[in-house]
Design a protein around this nucleic acid. Structure first.
Lengths: 125, 125
DNA sequence: TAACTGTACTATGTGTGTTAGTACAGTTAC
DNA sequence: GTAACTGTACTAACACACATAGTACAGTTA
């Protein structure tokens, strides 16, 4: 269900967060669905339980999942909204990136082409 | 000439690199222009000389500047091309970001609006 | 020669990410 | 009630990157 890239500079706990968000965005996981337990996922990914816990507690504070002691960690009702709102905040990053590329000499056409590609090609990972 | 944001999570040496690139992109600095010496800039920015050296050696390896022992650090002839080519490689990042935003539920219109803003509004910093 | 330039090196401190191990409390099924 | 699960909390240790501190050496220039 999850896959970790040990060579990536992205922290393991963030990779897990991103993958949970992606699963929710794709509709593969929905509100109420239970995530793997801290211990089982740590074994499956050959990662320390603390790292999984960090990911889950972060998902909790972002309103994407709810951790219930004794029961498990579940996708929250507000998950989709939380992810969408987080996405809106990233629009500022997008704006800055476009500005930076334009400044560096990349043409408007090249930029618009990349955006078009991103909008049309469905995510594969 | 340079300004460092100590609160930023971006490493100081990277902030310097970015600002040199921006100065070149804006045409404020051109091939052959000399950058401040490692020592003088370290004093001006209240930063360790090693940090400046790291920035300069990185600019060197990126083909944006040439460090000449005993003389100084100068903007290279290939600076503009190097920056533009680096920008082109970032188009892939742009594509992935757009893909991620679209997946998270941000509408096509919101994305295109942000891109338009980035293309129209000139950089201010 | 003096004063500048970049470069190289070791040592140290700090923050973050991760691992390791232990312990405690709530939930569920037998 | 007990066993086996769940999340949570804590300390200790390690690795790595960023940055500082200080020293030293070699090339350039006036």
């Amino acid at each position: 269900m999850f896959r970790i890239d040990g060579m990536s500079r992205t922290p393991v706990y963030e990779q897990i967060i991103e993958q949970v968000e992606k699963l929710v965005s794709l509709g593969i996981m929905k509100a109420g669905d239970q995530l793997p337990s801290v211990r089982s996922l740590s074994i499956e990914l050959s990662v320390n339980p603390n790292t999984i816990q960090k990911a889950y507690s972060e998902l909790d504070s972002r309103g994407i999942a709810n951790s219930v002691p004794g029961k498990g960690c579940f996708i929250s009702e507000s998950a989709e909204d939380a992810i969408k709102n987080a996405g809106r905040k990233k629009l500022a990053i997008l704006r800055e990136l476009v500005k930076e590329l334009a400044l560096s000499g990349v043409t408007k056409e090249e930029i618009e082409k990349a955006v078009e590609d991103g909008l049309s090609i469905p995510a594969e990972n």
